[in-house]
Amino acid sequence: MNAEPNTEIGVQVENLNAWFGKTQALQDISMNVAAKHATAIIGPSGCGKSTFVRCLNRMHETVRDARVTGRVRIGELDVYNGTPAVYVRRHVGMVFQKANPFPTMSIYDNVAAGLRLNGFSDRHKLDEIVENSLKMAVLWDEIKGDLRKKSGASLSGGQQQRLCIARALAVEPQVLLMDEPCSALDPISSGKIEDLIFQLKEHYTIVIVTHNMQQAARVAEYTGFFLLGRLIEFDKTEKIFTKPSEKRTEDYITGRFG
């Protein structure tokens, strides 16, 4: 199943294949990701879920000998057809498993980094965007007094992850990819990120890779189950976790394998 007919499509994936050298990591993936909703990607280690999200913003091709075929469209943007990778990544933000703030930069500079790289120089406007991004990432109230005093690396793990989300939001992407964003966080910090995802999906299309199925069930409206590089089942989250159509999905989510 794909996004429902009356739901706007945020990311359209058609016949996507990906390789690492001769090893095929993704096989013929087609799915429509609903705009302004959260979609979870689940599956056992090595099933291709991280490769899948890395194909959506052309991070996959940064690996040596990596190759992709197929089509990915984000609105009018054709990700693999003549669009520069840098331009794609400007529209598709990404948050990784381990928070990766620029350690020598202040909190402010971390958030402003993407815009500055894009040549943005209006200081007053930059202040405004940094503040708004930090507010959207629900971090502003905790750090507003230390914006330029403290480095990004001085924050707690959960705060660093929200800082990275703020950094991704600052360039106003259409899509936000999250690759196991809470796996290194304690339950309180994870809860804050999950609450944040709930707020962010009002404005952004979110694709989240997670090993935590309860988390997928809590935050995502749609869930795709990957196995051995294939998309086995893609449906509404409530259906996937209560009465999946595929036996392999059921066996995985009930812990019978994986």
Binding site: M213, Q214, A217, F241, T242, K243, P244, T249, E250, I253, T254
Partner: peptide, 9 residues
């Protein structure tokens, strides 16, 4: 155990 699918049912 936070059961799912057939186990939850």
């Amino acid at each position: 155990q936070q059961p799912m699918a057939v186990d939850l049912r």
